[in-house]
Design a protein around this nucleic acid. Sequence first.
DNA 1: GCGACAG
DNA 2: ATCTTGTCGC
Length: 256
Amino acid sequence: MSAPPAEGLVQQWESEQTRLRQQVLDHDTEDWQKSPVFSGLERVGGVDLSFIKGDDTRACAQLVVLSYPDLKLLYEDSRMVTLTAPYVAGFLAFRETPFLLEALQRLQQKQPRLQPQVVFVDGNGLFHHREFGLACHLGVLSGLPCVGVAKNLLQVQGVFKSEEHQSQIAALQKGGDSFPLTSASGKVLGKALRSSDKSFKPVYVSVGHRISLDAAVRLTLSCCRYRVPEPIRQADYRSREYLRSRFPAADSGSGE
DNA sequence: GCGACAG
DNA sequence: ATCTTGTCGC
């Protein structure tokens, strides 16, 4: 049912990514990022979108802000939105960013003191076709430090789900172990991280904006109670809960 | 025709 | 993203 994206649109998106890419800062810009224990860091944010099943345009845009290092909920915002852009692999940001930005702006307007010092994004940052994934996009447009955490490996820039990749995953002995995701040209675009002792499938961490890869990986690890970092996990859970309460299952086994 | 494809 | 139950384990 989803019509293929208009011809020129993807090209336009591509050039915009290339343009905005120049504004990404892939190093630590905040003092807390240089601290081994991130002293000075008090608030971490997480964003996500959850969809109503069967509808790929209506979704709940979610923002949560948690305390650090306690990871307790300080702020939460759920909002029903209607997406206009289609999902095109490599261009996720054009579909989701506008609504995540709006959530950050509502927070800035209502509770500026709760503005997160870093935002975890469900998706990739520099680990991307043109080194400008969702986490970079949101980072540049919001100006906030962002970290991209993807649950699945994006096969780009010469990174493949090869036997070698599988064996590297098997070699991750404990939570905190990781290995670099290196492009064909030799650049480290991100890291596969075993985020806890109990999880075996790694998460893929990459720089979004205003943070180094090293700090991004350390911070991700320190925010993981389970496989997915708590800010993203909370955003995901709460957005689904929001949909569950307002859009009860259309069908169930009760009929006959 | 088949596999890929962050969310 | 969503489609989806039970099941094994602590």
